[in-house]
């Protein structure tokens, strides 16, 4: 495995007393990739992210950012941007001051252009003189994202960044992150409770359960490998058809249901069933979702 990967987590274990929050977890993120870490509450997502950003020390294993061990090399910190799950209140300081201080913490001088770009893109420009307590919940989240991006990191860690954020804002946020991904080659580790969001955004997914990474893979492959594709043919009233195709499951009233492999052509199935087009009222196809995969892989845990 190349040592220049944005993130490598190798056999990471984190114990709190006798409780194993993270159990020998290994995964990596490829350059420019969005990797989604999904799991129920208490699965170990935040513990993993906290270890990556050095808030927690690993009990065993190691974390490398662009080849540098995060515990040994300060350099990895320059490459990392971190959006925590919980809101941070900066007391007496305005949004702009917070971003100026944060730039300084990364050794960035005269960063006003970048700060104004982020304020503008994240819809915070007109609120730049406000204090955190004067911002709405969504604005506070966007401020966390601006802070994480102020030093132009190459790897962004997003720990449930859209919790409590409305749909419109979520979409604008993700379009901005996609833009950054294209323009700045950002790689992203995302934890979220919105599976639909993860399905749309993530190139690869890792499922965590009770501290163990139980399944990883490209999002599309996971969905296709773990779920089924159902096709329902609604017949015109009074149509009488007998069906004995391999993929046929059942007939209820005027609806024939088939379970198809993902790559199987629908036309071929129609040809095999010897149904005539004039007998068909409607055709509905339901493909599996990440939600289905989650239920299968992780079980009935609370997301």
């Amino acid at each position: 495995m190349s040592s220049n990967l944005p993130l490598e987590v190798v056999d990471l274990t984190k114990k709190y007393g006798s409780f194993k929050a993270v159990d020998a977890v290994s995964f990596h993120i490829n350059p420019g990739e969005i990797f989604g870490l999904l799991g129920p509450n208490g699965a170990g997502k935040t513990s993993i992210i906290s270890t990556i950003v050095t808030l927690e020390e690993p009990t065993e294993g190691e974390v490398k950012v662009f080849g540098n061990n995060v515990r040994k090399s300060k350099h990895s910190k320059y490459e990392l941007g971190f959006v925590p799950q919980e809101i941070i209140n900066h007391g007496f300081f305005s949004v702009e001051e917070i971003l100026q201080f944060h730039s300084g913490y990364y050794g960035v001088k005269n960063n006003q252009e970048r700060i104004e770009y982020l304020l503008d893109k994240l819809g915070l420009f007109e609120h730049k003189d406000k204090k955190v307590k004067q911002l709405s919940g969504g604005m506070k989240r966007r401020l966390l994202i601006a802070k994480a991006l102020v030093h132009k990191p190459k790897l962004l860690l997003l720990d449930e960044p859209t919790a409590g954020v409305d749909i419109e804002l979520r979409e604008s946020l993700w379009s901005f992150v996609s833009e950054l991904r294209k323009e700045e080659g950002l790689s992203i580790l995302l934890t979220t409770h919105y599976l639909e969001e993860a399905e749309q955004l993530c190139d690869r997914i890792g499922f965590l359960s009770r501290g163990r990474l139980i399944k990883t893979g490209p999002t599309k492959e996971l969905i296709e490998g773990q779920t089924n594709r159902f096709m329902s043919i609604v017949l015109k009233p009074g149509t009488s058809v007998e069906c004995s195709h391999d993929f046929f499951i059942e007939k209820k009233a005027d609806v024939l249901t088939f379970k198809l492999p993902y790559q199987y052509p629908v036309g071929e199935l129609l040809a095999c069933t010897s149904l005539k087009l004039e007998q068909i009222q409607d055709i509905k196809i339901r493909e599996g979702s990440l939600d289905d995969v989650f239920r299968q892989v992780v079980g009935g845990g609370v997301l």
Binding site: T54, K77, E86, G91, Y105, Y106, G107
Partner: peptide, 17 residues
């Protein structure tokens, strides 16, 4: 105050030693 607000975590995450 920073412990209460969560700001102290920032000091650990950034490049300050």
């Amino acid at each position: 105050g920073s412990k209460f607000a969560g700001e102290l975590e920032d000091y650990k995450v950034v490049t300050l030693n």
